[in-house]
């Protein structure tokens, strides 16, 4: 059975896949052209001194949702709405389109380089470490409990060539390595783990969570199951109360992956958070997945794993190891929809 197969192995995660919508590049281009002009001067957006020849946007967002099809994993999507429509919007805290269940927002950073050379010269290893450190800081400072989306923080480096309408980009989904790999004791479809009453109660509670505009964008949550089979979903900040109430506790998250033998990437930093803040040793988690937009206990997985952070990473000053670059940069040319000359020809 699948439980035997899974037992005792290293827990492996299905990597995130990114998709950058054409609208994202249109928005970035108009930001550059309208607000910055074509000059190459850096813009001090983040309040820290920047290198010449690039700007960073510390407030971009991307979107994902739980897997909703048994054969296709969901991907992390960058849309026009991932960027502000102009730089005047920069000051206010980012409004993240809360309430759209199919677009759960995740914060990220864009580093746009103005030349191919500077893109190539980027020290990607230290960038990854820097972003991973932000996640570790958010774990230690309890920010994760208030806004769990920071656990899935992403970043993107790009070179936008507006003379040729060519956009080169490379995404990373930093994952902290805070200890030896988690060992999976059990990983099975939720339907096989819960009794019928528990499964029904859990489905109902999850559908309610997903239907409320207040909670639908919350990617990480807690599942309590009482002895009378009643399931309750709670916010991450309630983990202490959940641990103490004697009910069965699972750490739940929206899983973009459709794989039956692996949880998706967002679980990695979640396990780091759990081991550093809540508990180490044996824990249970729920990979929440949907079918046609509703909770599906056949696709959702329940796992049991052993986690143990290394001593170093308990120190808030530590710089953890990290992984998470997508395998290759991608390049897209949008001359067809951006080049005014071509547009004029096709309109003639």
């Amino acid at each position: 059975s699948s439980s035997d197969k899974g037992s005792g192995r290293i827990l492996q995660f299905d990597p995130f896949q990114s998709l950058v919508d054409e609208g994202f590049w249109h928005r970035l281009s108009s930001l550059k052209l309208d607000s910055l002009g074509l000059d190459q001067s850096p813009i001090p957006l983040t309040g820290t001194p920047l290198l010449p020849s690039f700007f960073s946007l510390a407030f971009s967002v991307c979107f994902y949702a739980p897997c909703s099809h048994p054969k296709v994993s969901n991907r992390l999507t960058l849309l026009a709405e991932s960027l502000p429509s102009d730089f005047k919007e920069l000051q206010f805290s980012l409004e993240r389109a809360h309430g759209n269940r199919n677009r759960c927002p995740v914060p990220g950073t864009l580093y746009n380089m103005n030349t191919f050379e500077s893109f190539k010269a980027l020290d990607r290893d230290s960038l990854l470490k820097k972003e991973a450190k932000k996640i570790l800081d958010d774990i230690h400072s309890a920010k994760v409990e208030e806004d769990s989306a920071v656990l899935s923080r992403f970043f993107i480096i790009s070179f936008a060539d507006l003379k040729k309408w060519n956009f080169l980009h490379w995404l990373a989904f930093p994952a902290l390595v805070v200890g030896p790999p988690a060992v999976v004791l059990n990983l099975r479809p939720a339907r096989e783990v819960f009794n019928q009453g528990e499964a029904q109660s859990l489905s109902a509670a999850l559908n309610e969570w997903r239907n409320s505009s207040l909670t639908t964008g919350v990617l990480y949550f807690l599942v309590s199951i009482a002895s009378n089979s009643r399931a309750t979903i709670r916010q991450l900040k309630d983990w202490k109360a959940c641990q103490d109430d004697g009910q069965k506790l699972l750490f739940g998250f929206y899983d973009p992956s459709c794989r039956l033998d692996n949880p998706g990437w967002p679980l990695r930093n979640y396990l780091a958070f759990i081991s550093l803040r809540c508990q180490d040793g044996k824990i249970q988690f729920l990979c929440y997945r949907e079918k046609r937009g509703f909770a599906d206990m056949g696709l959702s997985l329940v796992g049991e794993a052993v986690i143990s952070p290394s001593k170093d990473c308990r120190d808030p000053q530590c710089v953890p190891k990290a992984v998470g670059w997508e395998p290759k940069p991608k390049s897209i040319n949008l001359a067809e929809s951006m080049n005014p000359e071509r547009l004029a020809v096709s309109a003639a």
Binding site: I10, L11, Q12, F13, D14, P15, K120, R124, D125, L128, V177, P181, A182, R259, D261, N262, R268, K321, A322, V323, G324, W325, P327, K328, P329, K330, S331
Partner: peptide, 19 residues
């Protein structure tokens, strides 16, 4: 892009990626 592969991919030693 073929000329621009990751020179020393950290991730190589990462045992926890499913792929």
């Amino acid at each position: 892009m073929e000329d621009y592969e990751d020179p020393e991919n950290l991730i190589e030693t990462d045992t926890a990626s499913a792929h």
